[in-house]
Structures are given as structure tokens and as C-alpha cells.
Amino acid sequence: MAEDQELMPPGATQGPVQAVSAMGFPSPARDYFDGGLDLNRLLVRDRVSTFIMRVSGHAMQSAGIFDGDEVIVDRSLSVRHGSVVIVNLNGQMLVRRWQIDGQQVGLLSDESPLPVILAEGDEVSVFGVITRCLHHVR
């Protein structure tokens, strides 16, 4: 972050770029500027049911989710076979892939090639389905 800031000229911001004309000649693009790209519109389908969480651990890399990433969770979606979910298993909040095999439900991660099959007595509750991962590239 520090080196990023050094590269920026003093006073510069990293907000959306807007055409500014100091002279009397108006920018021909001015009438078309509508605020730039709003990430909320891309990433959040419905504000009401969307929650963001931070990931700790390395067991979901095959799903593209890495240690330190933020995930976007939509509670309104139904869980299907293959959904990557936030699930509370016996008191612990986990990121896992939901596996349905007949009557059996399993939770899959990179920790083992086979899903952990949920047994009677397990307390399981799905918080929501992950729709996006905000991966930190650097």
C-alpha cells in the first residue's frame, strides 16, 4: 500500500475518473457521465440479503477462495449440490462446498478428497450461499 501511495502524485485520489475542464470549453462527454462503474451493482444482487465475511484458512482454494479474501454471501439463495456455502457446523463457521448424494449431505473442502458426511447429532445450519469472492491479488 505504501509504495502505491508514493507513486501517486500529491493530492491525487483513486476515485472514479471524471472529465474536468478548466477552460470554457465543456467536455463533450459531460452529458454522458453517469457516475462510473458502481461495484455494488455488480456484486450485490440484493442489499437486504447480502452479507460480507472474511476468510481465514487454505482449505477452499479449489473454489478460488484464499486466506484473507472477503466473500459475498447471499442468504436468499437456495442451497444446491455444489453450492459453496457459509455453514455453521457444531458451533464453527466454515466455508464448504455442499454435496448432496441421495439422502446424504456432505461438506467438501481441500482437506480431504471425500466430503465429511453429516451425521445425526451434528448441528448444522447454513448461513448463506457464497456468490463472489473478493480475492486479494497483491
Binding site: M53, R54, S56, G57, H58, D67, M93, L94, V95, S109
Partner: peptide, 14 residues
């Protein structure tokens, strides 16, 4: 402040 502060998000284990 799970829903209003980036520094206080719920941490989930992967």
C-alpha cells in the same frame, strides 16, 4: 460491527 465496518467482518474458516 459485522455489517458496517470492514475491520470487524465475521471471520469464517476455510
Amino acid at each position: 460491527r459485522y455489517t458496517t465496518d470492514w475491520d470487524e467482518l465475521l471471520v469464517v474458516r476455510a
